[in-house]
């Protein structure tokens, strides 16, 4: 009998925050007046959904739709203004190069990145060879990361994050690095992780990538859920919406 339990449950979540932005240049002001103004951002507006464990869910939407805000709220960097998120596992955001020191070698950064991702030294030691093999960057592994191309950087980051085996993996555009062959291996790696009941949320502007990886998709638009369901139907609707020229960057202000 299949037991289906939630890995993530989001209930009536709203996230608002204020940022300090430059005042418009054409605004006349005296020299002692502040050149900045506080702007309230309504990034997520009363959204609810749940993700069963062991599923890959794609998160799509234009710039400013609230995708990254949602992931950052899940990992606890941002705080809900209203509502709640319940997580049945420790989330990890795959963030390219988190904890890395670019002046050091890739091998040294595998240790730093692994520790930043919550692994222990013995776990890193055990998995180091597999991580390096998966990243497949050859002799560059012992060179400073300042010599790496963005593709190499992304491959090593991805390898470190996915060998950590987080309970909930959140990916924000981190698959855009690397060539086609690496992307194929990366997608396979994520599918393998899902087989061991890890839940994955992938944010990407590429609806093709989302359609290839995910089973379900959530389309965010201006902080609200516009559509949610089977991946192909959601991405089709999203592409149609884009083709009609409706999708532009949004900055909702209160």
């Amino acid at each position: 009998m299949q037991l289906e339990t939630d890995a993530i449950r989001v209930e009536n979540l709203s996230v608002n925050y204020s940022i300090v932005a430059e005042s418009p240049l054409d605004q006349k002001r005296k020299f002692y007046n502040k050149s900045t103004r506080k702007t309230e951002i309504k990034a997520l507006d009363d959204i609810s959904f749940s993700i069963p464990s062991g599923q890959i869910v794609g998160l799509i939407g234009g710039n400013g739709a609230g995708k990254s805000t949602l992931l950052k709220t899940m990992i606890g960097v941002l705080k809900p203004s209203k509502g709640r998120i319940d997580l049945w596992g420790r989330p990890h955001l795959l963030s390219p190069g988190m904890g890395f020191n670019r002046l050091l070698s890739g091998r040294e950064n595998v240790v730093l990145g692994g520790l930043a991702a919550g692994m222990t030294l013995s776990e890193i030691k055990e998995k180091q060879d597999s991580i390096i093999e998966f990243a497949d960057i050859g002799g560059f592994i012992d060179l400073p990361m300042t010599t790496y191309s963005s593709g190499m950087f992304g491959r090593l980051s991805f390898a470190v994050a996915t060998y950590n085996r987080p309970e909930i993996l959140l990916i924000d555009e981190a698959l855009s690095a690397g060539d086609a062959a690496f992307k194929e291996r990366a997608v396979q790696r994520l599918k393998d992780l899902c087989d061991s009941a890890i839940s994955i949320v992938v944010v990407s502007h590429s609806s093709t990538l989302i359609a290839e990886m995910a089973t379900e998709a959530i389309w965010l638009h201006r902080g609200k859920i516009k559509l949610q369901g089977e991946v192909q139907s959601v991405t089709d609707e999203y592409l149609k919406f884009q083709a009609e020229g409706n999708e532009t960057a949004q900055l909702d202000q209160r």
């Binding site: 899940m74 209203k82 509502g83 709640r84 998120i85 319940d86 997580l87 049945w88 420790r90």
Partner: peptide
């Protein structure tokens, strides 16, 4: 059939 345990982590609006 669902056997949902209590969540490991909860993020909620707090001051």
């Amino acid at each position: 059939m669902s056997t949902q345990s209590s969540p490991k982590i909860t993020r909620r609006a707090t001051r």
